[in-house]
Every structure is written in C-alpha cells, then in structure tokens.
Amino acid sequence: MAAQHWRRLAASPLAELISRGLAALVAGYLLAFGATAFLSVYLPLPRPDRVVVASLLCFAVWVGAAVYSFAARRPLRVWVVLVALAGALCLAAWLPTDWRMRP
C-alpha cells in the first residue's frame, strides 16, 4: 500500500519538477566541476592560463546542464547522464598524477 503511494508521488508533476530542479543544481554543478578539472589539465596552455580559462567557462557548462535537465525527456536519465559524465571527466583529469600538474 505504502509502496504504491510512494510510486504515485514519485510520478507526480511536482516530484518531477523537484527532481529536474535538483539535477540542474547539484548534478549541473558536478558536471561544471568535472569540466573545469578536465579543461584545467587538457587545454594546450601554460598551467595558470589553463586553470583560469577552464574556471571562467564553468558557469556556461552549469547553465547548459540546467537547460538539459529541463529539456531532457526522462527526468531520471538526467541524473545518470550528468553524474556519469562528471565522473568520467574527473577521472580523466586526476588519473595522470604528474602530467596534470605540469607547468
């Protein structure tokens, strides 16, 4: 009985709105974080310039993720896509231990 109640609540428009909103905020920030880390390592520039350019771009990534959170057809898919992408970017950024800190 309770399970059914929860399922109905989760499928309601309000729950979907909250899910998309939180995804835009939280998962969007995670993607911006991953993108900044990735670009801070892989941009073909000296280290201080890499970091500054990557950081200044982060808000565009975040806003793009927010638009995607609301535009995507399925609200749960948004979380999967954004978090997976953020994780992959972070992994790619942190794995090359010495190279990521090259001058």
Binding site: R50, S55, C58, A93, M101
Partner: peptide, 8 residues
C-alpha cells in the same frame, strides 16, 4: 569552482 586549483 575550486576544481582547477585542486587538480592542477
């Protein structure tokens, strides 16, 4: 956004 300073 501290990511750049953290990674580089």
């Amino acid at each position: 956004m501290p990511a750049g300073g953290m990674v580089a």
